[in-house]
Design a protein around this nucleic acid. Structure first.
Length: 617
RNA sequence: GCCGACGUAGCUCAGUUGGUCAGAGCGGCUGUUUUGUAAACAGCGGGUCGUGGGUUCGAAUCCCUCCGUCGGCUCCA
């Protein structure tokens, strides 16, 4: 969650002021409170506070909000003033505000409080701030004064609808080595109505939570005995993930990729060569051989393996590009606190792909992959925009800087040429190269990073990859890493919430449910004949012949979000026709007249084959 | 890993000044019913209250350990 562009300056100022008033209220209730920073974030604001031995909890929100309402009702003016920076530092010392004092010292020294700019200032690079600051900006309302650049609204009476949402831990200045403060989050809108709408959206998000739906729709689970971050997939969940993987595989095959396979454990030397060991060694699962002296690891990615396949024979410039795909499960020992549902797991299945190509082929290859990503996200019905992820000035990256410069330029050129909506961000690159990250937008407007295309000049070099060029000399190929779904687990977490579990026919674990009206032989026989026909067409069809009312069986089918339900009784048996019940989100035009059973099954089979989202019934 | 909250049947949850507090609904099973598009009726099972320890005459309830979940922070090849 970064600082985001406000919808309007007024709203931004209001949220800023809300943070200020939150601090005012906390100061009133806990006079010894020490304050960190209180910026505006998406939909609201937060303030970092340190209450010493006291701890804030959500139980305190009632009284804090009450205090904030009082301050609002008092309609205190926000007075803006500036003081010489040294006086400001004295003020912070006198008021026992060590965090503010630290910020002020940074302002005095480098004109900024932003960690990255501070580093740059220390490295002698130009800080984005305007150099040393002479004066510090303050806002005062009533008895409370706070260091703040603003802007603020005119008075506390101008505050809109505010609600505190949660409190959590946050390291001072985002640094793991620093002390931990408490971060109080709030949301703020101009009107009560907007606030309510936002709360409704949060409720909707909760209803769609993939962990909840994963349980309700019987898709996946976690077991304490298996371990955290290690999901197990039920038959339904497995069908879903395999259909997705199959689609990604087919799509990439249509772009000239061929499948390869690599083992799940590998000697650690492979990752020492690639550079991963130095950077991610502590996140690898170790495997010890009892036969040899080898130190093995569970593989955390496939790219080094694919370089071995490339290097297994001499390559000519004529052979390139060579494109490998492998949808494989990899293992990363993520820190426990970072795990969450399917979003972040320790066993990750990537639809991983690697292109080995010549410099002059990069553009065409990137173009293809941009197109493939768009095709895939159009199919699953999610919008895309692109983030160009560049390196920053730190030493966390391998390879010569000039190469990075040109690689970043090439990526941008491809994105521009494809007329994609994009934004650029430094510090988001992989250690071996810049990336194009695709941000997918879900049905309730949230963005998620899923697909990625990464340029890599480093690993081919480190692995000594080569091809023989036209002139007979050895050349180093370029490697392009591509994942379209990203990780299947993560994609599922997003996709389940995007669809709220209402999967299109091609992905629905159960596509058609046959509901019997009674348990007469003729009915059961007909139902099972129907199921047989459907299976021949490749459909996933189940029969509910339980001793329950039709109403209840329909309800059960709806709750499992099965796309089609058909009731079989005498009418259907006599006429050989039926009126399918279509899941509401798929209906284009409601059908009331019966249709032939053959026609029904063929239509559904075609929908599945065509991977369409709507029903043509 | 860090800060905080939490962990009661398959699921959703009730149960705190420590003492008939081990409960409900749904699901499951059995029987009756043979059903026409979002819940027929009745009965029956089912939990060492996450784990291990401690305090106490007595612990789901209080304390500690560990495991796990959730919200953040940090990280994300």
């Amino acid at each position: 969650m970064g600082e985001t562009k406000p919808k309007s300056n007024d709203l931004h100022a209001m949220r800023h002021s809300a943070a200020h008033v939150l601090a005012t209220a906390i100061q009133h209730l806990w006079p010894h409170a020490k304050f960190g920073v209180g910026p505006v974030v998406e939909n609201g604001f937060y303030y970092d506070v340190d209450l010493g031995k006291d701890k804030l909890s959500e139980d305190d929100f009632g009284k804090i909000e009450a205090e904030m309402r009082q301050i609002k009702a008092a309609n205190q003016k926000f007075e803006h003033f500036t003081v010489p920076i040294d006086e400001a530092i004295d003020w912070a010392q006198e008021k026992h505000q060590p965090y503010k004092q630290e910020l002020l010292n940074d302002l005095k020294r480098a004109g900024t409080t932003v960690a990255k700019d501070l580093d740059n200032a220390e490295l002698g690079l130009a800080a984005t701030g305007a150099g040393k600051l002479e004066k510090a900006s303050f806002y005062r309302n009533g008895d409370f004064t706070d260091l703040c650049r603003g802007p603020h609204v005119a008075s506390t009476g101008k505050l809109g609808a505010i609600k505190l949402l949660r409190v959590s831990g946050a390291y001072w200045r985002g640094n793991e080595g620093n002390s931990q403060m408490q971060r109080v989050y709030g949301i703020a809108f101009e009107t009560d109505k907007e606030l309510k709408q936002h709360l409704v959206m949060l409720e909707e998000a909760k209803k769609r939570d993939h962990r909840k739906l994963g349980q309700e729709l019987d898709l996946f689970l976690f077991s304490d005995l298996v371990g955290s971050g290690l999901p197990l997939f039920t038959p339904r969940g497995t069908l879903l993930r395999e259909e997705l993987a199959k689609y990604s595989n087919e799509l990439r095959e249509s772009y000239g990729f061929t499948k390869v396979w690599s083992p799940h454990i590998t000697k650690k030397e492979l990752y020492e060569t690639s550079g991963h060991w130095a950077k991610f060694g502590d996140e690898l699962f170790l495997v010890k051989s009892q036969e040899t002296k080898d130190q093995l690891v569970m593989k955390p990615m496939n790219c080094p393996h694919h370089t071995r396949i490339y290097a297994s024979r001499a390559r000519s410039y004529r052979d390139l590009p060579i494109r490998y795909l492998e949808t494989a499960t990899i293992y990363r020992d993520e820190k426990t606190g970072e795990l969450g549902g399917l979003n972040r797991v320790r066993s990750v299945t990537q639809d991983d792909s690697h292109i080995f190509c010549r410099q002059d082929q990069i553009e065409a290859e990137i173009n293809n992959m941009l197109q493939a990503a768009h095709e895939l996200y159009a199919t699953v019905g999610m919008g895309l925009r692109v983030r160009l992820s560049y390196r920053d000035e730190s030493d966390d990256y391998l390879g010569p800087k000039e190469l990075w410069q040109s690689a970043q330029k090439q990526l941008k050129a491809a994105v521009v040429a494809n007329k994609l909506e994009y934004f650029e961000q430094e510090g988001e690159a992989a250690f071996y190269g810049p990336k194009i990250d695709f941000m997918a937008t879900d049905a309730i407007g949230r963005e998620h990073q899923l697909a990625t295309v990464q340029l890599d000049f480093v690993q081919p070099e480190r692995f000594g990859l080569e091809y023989i060029a036209e002139d007979g000399n050895g050349q180093t190929p370029v490697m392009i890493h591509v994942a379209l779904l990203g990780s299947i687990e993560r994609f599922l977490s997003v996709y389940i919430e995007h669809t709220a579990g209402r999967f299109p026919v091609w992905l629905a674990p159960e596509q058609v449910r046959i509901i019997t009206l009674n348990d007469e032989k003729a009915t059961l026989g007909y139902a099972s004949k129907l199921q047989g026909q459907a299976k021949e067409l490749g459909l996933r069809v189940s029969i509910d012949d339980s001793n329950e009312s039709v109403g209840k069986k329909i309800r059960a089918s709806e709750l499992m979000k099965v796309p089609y339900a058909v009731v079989i009784g005498d009418k259907e048996i006599k006429s050989n026709k039926l009126v399918p019940r279509v899941r509401k989100d798929m209906v284009v035009q409601e059908r009331t007249t019966p249709m032939g059973i053959e026609e029904f099954l063929k239509t559904v089979a075609n929908e599945a084959k065509g991977r369409v989202n709507k029903s043509s019934l």
